[in-house]
């Protein structure tokens, strides 16, 4: 049976090499303590729908300016972020007619454990140690797994181009690296967008909710949604009435795939010996059958020769 043994080591070697390549990395959790991560608190009760953030974002990212600046008509239909607009402000009617409208800015939520980055096979989307989830265009394959993985429908794809990229809000990572606040938060005239540390902003949000009883919905959107996000929202209108998905749960999406990824080394270490065992066993029983047919004597030799033949037989 030494042929089989040699073959086994050959397989184990190849499988082992594959195992190293496919080894799931330990989740690259944000190295920064979550509470210290840069974050933004969006207070929907303070937003006046001026769309200054849209204009600032377009300018900071070299995008075409926002559509119809100053024109209320853009609020007629709900808009999505796109390859030319990383943030948009939408208008929602307040359930109490006398309260008029509320406005909500959307952009990438900069999740604590982002689905998009864990989906990306080339680390083109990456959660940086500093906090923002950024895109490296030179690595992207354009598979669009990030788009379907993101629960907030954030990454957008340049379908119209022959050499397309994914586009999304970068949290102005470059500005932040220079010590500047994100472009959008820096122009907000009412303080509806407040840039700071996540822990402090959660405190601030709770304080506002408690100090204005009856005003706010008692929920901070993003504190736990999808494992927590670094853009946080408070509002006086229930979130499901302002275009937020409220069915996302609190598990971080990458958590859902970790068991599957953990199975890789198990398969690679268990399958080969198991199959070699099966193989040896089928060879033995075949040999035993041959032996009982052709009488005792040459049986065992024949068995081992046949084992060798089987390996070289296609």
């Amino acid at each position: 049976m030494d042929v089989s043994r040699r073959t086994f080591f050959k397989i184990a070697g190849v499988a082992g090499a594959a195992g190293i390549a496919g080894q799931p990395a330990k989740a690259e959790a944000a190295s920064l303590a979550v509470s210290q991560a840069p974050a933004v608190l969006v207070d929907a009760t303070r937003c006046i729908g001026c769309r200054g953030c849209e204009a600032a974002c377009a300018e900071a990212n070299g995008l075409p300016g926002p559509v119809a600046p100053g024109d209320e008509a853009v609020f007629e239909a709900r808009r999505q972020t796109g390859v030319g607009a990383y943030t948009v402000v939408n208008r929602y009617a307040h359930p109490k007619a006398e309260e008029g409208y509320r406005f909500v800015k959307t952009q990438c939520m900069h999740c604590a454990d982002p689905a998009c980055a864990s989906a990306c096979l080339a680390k083109a989307l990456e959660k940086t140690a500093a906090g923002p989830v950024v895109y490296h265009p030179d690595r992207c394959l354009g598979c669009r797994y990030c788009m379907v993985a993101c629960q907030f429908d954030v990454p957008k794809f340049e379908f119209e181009k022959a050499s397309p990229f994914v586009r999304k809000c970068s949290f102005c990572a470059e500005r932040q690296a220079q010590g500047l606040p994100p472009a959008c938060t820096s122009v907000c005239p009412t303080g509806a967008l407040q840039f700071g540390r996540r822990g402090e902003l959660l405190e601030e949000a709770r304080t506002r909710i408690y100090q204005n009883p009856g005003t706010y919905v008692r929920h901070i959107y993003g504190e736990h949604e999808a494992g927590g996000t670094n853009w946080l929202y408070i509002s006086d209108v229930p979130f499901d009435r302002m275009g937020f998905r409220t069915d996302l749960g609190t598990t971080s999406p990458p958590e859902l795939t970790r068991t599957a990824l953990a199975a890789v080394p198990v398969v690679l270490t268990l399958w080969p010996p198991l199959l070699m065992g099966l193989y040896t066993w089928t060879q033995r029983s075949r040999a035993a059958a041959a032996q009982s047919r052709s009488g005792a004597g040459a049986g065992h030799r024949q068995a081992s020769r046949q084992g060798g033949e089987e390996a070289s037989h296609d």
């Binding site: 989906a119 096979l121 080339a122 690595r139 992207c140 394959l141 598979c143």
Partner: peptide
């Protein structure tokens, strides 16, 4: 794929090891 010419990227130098797609 939008950028199929980047197929070698995850094979050669940027390993998204936490990604099912990588596997």
């Amino acid at each position: 794929l939008g950028r199929p010419w980047n197929l070698p990227v995850p094979m050669v130098y940027s390993f998204g090891t936490g990604s099912v797609m990588f596997e």
